[in-house]
Write a protein that binds this DNA or RNA. Structure first.
Lengths: 194, 194
DNA sequence: CGGTCTCTTGACGGAGTTCAAAGCTAGTGG
DNA sequence: CCACTAGCTTTGAACTCCGTCAAGAGACCG
């Protein structure tokens, strides 16, 4: 089992070595090159993904053809279209590697089995989903309260390293603005630095 | 323990009568009149609320003074500001009854104790939060992909009974539009019915 | 019935999009 | 290691969705 995941598990409660070995049998390892696709709209989201190293993004394609990024996942984050995963129904999302990425994947049947076999994992995933719900609430608050310009500044302030890591058009895609407008905002920021 | 919650619990896995009795000791019952406040911004969200009957809304106040509703909770839904609840830190949200409402409440210490005492509840809340995460993903997709007009139509189509149940200005508040613009959209819809 | 909420109407303005085109940058193959 | 090209970023002008403001018309409750 990948070191990063072991550590993450340990953070949320001790797991014995034998349990660790058992848990690891439920997962698969994977590697992706930059821009490689992990999930394609129309197919079923068969796995829950844990990013050990690298960066994924989830996006959908709008009516006008523009790719709208809804989630990024970097080290120690889980990613999946939960609706598609839980119902095992076709997804409207795509998942793609932003950088070369190493990940763990667990299939839906294995997810269910693992939760049954290792009760400790119920607690782990309760934590994970609880935290996701909390994050989603904040996210929704931001989306409602901030203008696009404020969203950009808040994103800049909250994730300065991340801005370096991904190209601008992906930042624009995540913020829900056009690359043209992002460019305008950057110019403004550059002209009048605080 | 309130009948509605019993049934909801049972849906996610059998619970014996003695467990049921034990579980019920962790909860408090409450009733609210219309417009009565349950959580006030600046205070800590001390409880997780389960709506047995009625309707709650969660909202925050924007810089311009407008109340922005982010969540409604009707029968069988849980509501809380998870960030405030989990960290026991001051919230930026308010929770208020839209209708006369009956609810169950569980405090943070009791929540933790309950999860420890009754492992079955780990599974229950894993389900709950998992479902919330899935719902949040769809919500975010809607917010990014639809214009305000499309948001209104989609809300109308998805929750026709709900539209009857709450006043228009709350619908506008939830959609993130002004009552004036909602009025314009309604007129348009009325003038050219499909 | 009188007053306070709620909903509607219309004029105007601004944040952010669209379209078109040019300038940059980085990866690729020769 | 350089040159070429495709993809990324910037500019600017025209346009649109939706918010703001102001005022009037209903509707509900004491």
């Amino acid at each position: 089992m990948v070191e990063a995941f072991k550590k993450h598990l340990a953070k949320f409660g001790a797991v014995s070595e034998s349990e660790e070995a058992l848990i690891s049998t439920y997962f698969q390892l994977g590697s992706l090159r930059k821009k490689q696709t992990l999930l394609k709209e129309g197919s079923v989201c068969k796995y829950l993904y844990f990013v050990a190293q690298g960066c994924l993004r989830m996006f959908f394609v709008k009516d006008n053809g523009v790719e709208q990024t809804t989630h990024f996942a970097i080290e120690n984050w889980w990613l999946a279209d939960y609706f598609s995963f839980l119902q095992q129904q076709p997804t409207e999302f795509n998942i793609q590697a932003v950088e070369p990425t190493h990940l763990l994947a667990i299939s839906y049947p294995n997810y269910e089995r693992l939760l049954q076999q290792v009760p400790q994992m119920e607690k782990y995933f309760r934590y994970i989903h609880q935290r996701e719900s909390a994050a989603a609430q904040r996210r929704i608050k931001y989306l409602y309260s901030l203008s696009k310009e404020e969203l950009y500044h808040s994103f800049n302030d909250s994730f300065p390293e991340f801005i370096q890591r991904v190209p601008q058009y992906l930042v624009a895609s995540y913020l829900g603005i056009t690359p043209e407008y992002l460019s305008e905002l950057r110019k403004k920021l550059f002209l009048k630095p605080v």
